[in-house]
Design a protein around this nucleic acid. Structure first.
Lengths: 191, 191
DNA sequence: AAGGTAATTCGATATAAATCTAATTAGATA
DNA sequence: TATCTAATTAGATTTATATCGAATTACCTT
């Protein structure tokens, strides 16, 4: 279950040392040693924490010469917290819209199962995106090329659709790797 | 220290069992036994987790007969996450964009203070939305009709603007009731 | 007051995590 | 190549925490 991913993000923040690190990084990028000095801890310890933060997506590493600078990953942080809020939103109605949804899907795909056009209307677009996203595997990591190939099975304009996946939180991207968000995070599902 | 409180909140969320509990509670209040059954854990274990969640502020307990019902504490959750975003915000630029922002606002509103058109460009649109959102009252709960009426003072297409408020996290909606998000959550402010 | 049900506390155990020192690896440069 | 520096890994220790069964408490109902 990919609820795990969210959990790991919050677990990463749930430690005093790591919280201090994030706070330090909010003033700008720092490398491991600098963090270690400022917090009065050894560099293996900091290395340990930084790698947890990196795994969780909260920070990004960038190599320069042989020093590695760490930066807050604002986008991922915002994505995680807003994902939490979405997830906790009460999910009622849900069924009322099922038939409507199926009808829309049916209208926008042709007999070969290809997407005729990308819907302009927000709600319709979200339904179509949800359908396409559900063709991907939960928990699997995709390169951009792999994503493009899969999308191309349904529509030529893979770049737009790939971007929409990110915009509407069907997927997230980290260091060039794409992964499906849990359906609770998909926008448009409970609106 | 305030940072500690935040940390404890995230630590509370950083556990798979507790995350599942929150997820369960998102469909409505439950008592301890019910949670225990659904998760296949004993009631002492659940009691332990519930008390951590309660200490962190994520949930609220309400006694009824001799059963205690637990409910998500939406307000506190939102407060914590937006507090995180605030804390992590870089305190730079901030002023540099002020004039630009004012110029955009000025261009899109006419002499009567009505919005001429909804900007198509993302950044401009976000500035305009931020201005409109700032006409609403913090903490006040609005029905959809009330929101529509207020927006109509500025532009005829209230439906689009109301939707944009949600899309860009200026507001959130819960059971048909709209409320302003804290400005730290508004998208486009630091982009 | 007696009995019942839900919640909590206690004590024990096992797993996970933070931190250190020492050793190793990875890159850059002289 | 030799060497410097930064980062990571390994191994060990200590502390924290998730979980259970058993005992206890809290409150309700009869």
């Amino acid at each position: 279950m990919q609820l795990d991913k969210q959990m790991l993000f919050f677990k990463a923040l749930g430690d005093p040392t790591r919280m201090k690190i994030l706070h330090l990084l909010s003033s700008g990028p720092l490398h491991g040693q600098a963090v270690a000095e400022r917090l009065g801890l050894t560099s293996p310890t900091i290395s340990h924490h930084l790698s947890k933060l990196r795994e969780s997506g909260a920070i990004i590493a960038r190599r320069e010469k042989n020093t590695i600078y760490f930066t807050l990953n604002d986008k991922a942080i915002r994505q995680n917290v807003s994902g939490l809020l979405t997830m906790l939103e009460k999910k009622k109605e849900e069924k009322q819209s099922m038939e409507e949804k199926e009808k829309i899907i049916k209208n926008f795909f042709d007999q070969e199962g290809r997407l005729k056009t990308i819907p302009a209307q927000r709600k319709k677009k979200l339904y179509v995106l949800a359908f396409l996203a559900s063709q991907l595997e939960i928990g699997k990591k995709y390169t951009e090329k792999e994503i493009n190939l899969i999308i191309q099975r349904y529509h030529e304009d893979f770049a737009t659709i790939r971007r929409e996946f990110i915009n509407h939180q069907f997927m997230f991207r980290n260091e060039g790797i794409y992964e499906l968000n849990p359906p609770e995070m998909w926008l448009g599902i409970n609106e």
